[in-house]
Every structure is written in structure tokens, then in C-alpha cells.
Amino acid sequence: MSAADDTQLALALARAAGAIAIEVRANGLLEGRALGDAGDKTVNAFLMAALRQHRPEDAILSEESEDDPARLAHSRVWIIDPVDGTREYAEGRDDWAIHIGLAVDGRAHTGAVGLPALDVVLTSTPGAPVSAPPTRKMVVSRTRPPAVAESVSAALDLELVGMGSAGAKAMAVVRGEADAYLHSGGQFEWDNCAPVAVAQAHGLHCSRIDGEPLAYNRAGASLPDLLICREDLAQPILRAIAQ
């Protein structure tokens, strides 16, 4: 099974899942938390069924399904977030995402991140490094910006921009709309596996905020901090964090 085959599957799943989520939101029959829950559950049911049909030998870790510890014995694990940024999705905003990631031997290997409200899907197909002019912007959580971001912002003169989904923030860097995405204070593997796979394929730095590599398919699935940025900013940001 080739990486290209996995990428094409991730792309197809992200597109189809995005269309389902848009339809659930657009029918106007639900709102608020009920809408968010319906979007999560409906998209998750589709993704779980599709992955079991197309990759029956692989394990799956999904935010919306009970974790099966048997995944820890698998080399290949699909790590998915059916609707990342459920609050933004339910509020009718654009900054939510569909995450379809594949970890192989504990590393983010393949991914697709859909931004359905923008009709955009980005994948881990190798692409040219991000070459847009620097924006001097760093995206952070719009509801829980990490305290360390204030220090980094002041040290490096970066404007902080609040945004919803982790996938939306990571893709803002991939698309050249921001120079960095910094998070601290709690995430899980499904929040960043697919975004990291896509960001890496476009030449961006991806690590923990202490510079350590990101590891996936671990017990507990907690992965509480993350840095995705232009390569030239990686060491300055990591030094600012350490100080």
C-alpha cells in the first residue's frame, strides 16, 4: 500500500466528511450544542465505516469513538477528528476543520485537513515549502490563548491572531496567512496528527514546544502542546519559550 494511496483515501474522506458536516449544518433543524453533537456523531459514523471498509487491517483512534487499547500494537493507526472546532462549527463560523491523519510507527505520516466552509482540503502530498512573505502573525486559540504566546509575541514582535480549530490554525500557516501556530495547555493526538502531516509535507517545522518530536499512538492520547511554524522562526520561537 503506497503513501499516495493513503493520501488519496485521506483526501476523499475529508471531502466527503466535509460535505456531510455542511449538510447537517445547512438544514437549519438544529442549533447550538445539539448541532455540534450531531455534526460530530454523523461525520464520525461515516468515517469509521469508511476506514473499516477501506483499511480493515489498520487501527483507528477517533475523538468521537471509544478508544481501543489494541491500537497500541498496530504500526498503522488512523487518527481522526470528525469535526475539529465543534464550537465554531455550531456558531456558523468558517474556522473549523475535518482531520484525517495516519500515524505510522508513532509518527504523523499522512494527512488531509478539510476546511469545508472554505471549500478547501490540504494534504500531505509533498509540496513546495511555504514561500509567501512573512506576515509577522502567530495564530493561537481564540478562546484559550496560551500564556507563553504573550511572551513569544513580545520577544519576537509577532501579532497574536485568535482562531478556532487547530486544523484551521495550522492550515493558516501552510497557506501563508500566518508565520506560526503555538499551542500549550491541552490537546490530544486527533487535534494535530493530520495538521502536522500536512504541515511537514510543506516544509514547516513541527514539534513540541520544548523542541522534542511529536509522537503518536501512545496510551492516553494526550499531546498537550504544539509548535508549527516557518523553519526560519523555529529556533527563535523555541528560545523565546525556553526563556
Rank of each mutant, 00 (worst) to 15 (best):
M1Y: 01
S2E: 13
A3Q: 11
A4D: 12
D5V: 08
Q8Y: 03
Q8T: 13
L9F: 04
L13K: 09
R15E: 14
A16P: 00
G18A: 08
A19H: 11
I20H: 01
I22M: 07
R25Y: 01
A26D: 15
N27A: 11
G28N: 06
G28H: 09
G28V: 08
L30D: 08
E31Q: 15
G32N: 11
A34E: 14
L35A: 05
L35P: 09
G36R: 03
A38Q: 15
A38W: 01
N44M: 09
A45Y: 00
F46N: 02
F46M: 13
L47T: 13
L51V: 04
H54V: 03
P56Q: 11
P56Y: 10
L61Q: 03
E64K: 11
S65T: 14
S65G: 01
D67S: 06
D67A: 13
D68C: 13
P69H: 10
A73F: 08
R76V: 13
V77K: 04
W78I: 08
I79R: 01
D81I: 13
P82D: 04
G85W: 01
A90C: 08
E91V: 00
E91A: 13
R93P: 00
D95L: 03
G101T: 10
G101M: 04
G101S: 07
D105N: 15
D105L: 03
R107E: 15
A108L: 09
A108Y: 13
T110G: 02
G111I: 06
L115N: 05
A117E: 13
L122N: 12
S124P: 12
T125P: 00
G127I: 11
A128N: 13
S131W: 00
S131P: 02
T135H: 12
K137G: 00
V140T: 04
P145C: 02
P146L: 03
V148E: 11
E150V: 12
A154I: 00
A154K: 14
L158G: 09
L160G: 07
L160T: 09
V174H: 06
G176S: 13
E177I: 01
E177H: 08
A178G: 03
D179L: 07
A180F: 05
Y181S: 02
G185D: 09
Q187M: 15
F188A: 06
D191M: 04
N192I: 12
N192W: 01
A197P: 05
V198K: 04
V198D: 01
V198R: 05
A201K: 09
G203N: 08
L204K: 12
L204C: 11
C206E: 10
R208I: 02
D210T: 05
D210F: 06
G211K: 09
L214I: 07
A215R: 15
A215E: 14
R218D: 00
A219Q: 15
A221T: 15
S222E: 15
L223C: 08
P224W: 03
L226W: 11
L227V: 01
L233A: 10
A234S: 14
Q235W: 02
I237N: 02
I237G: 07
L238Q: 07
A240T: 06
A242Q: 10
Q243H: 15
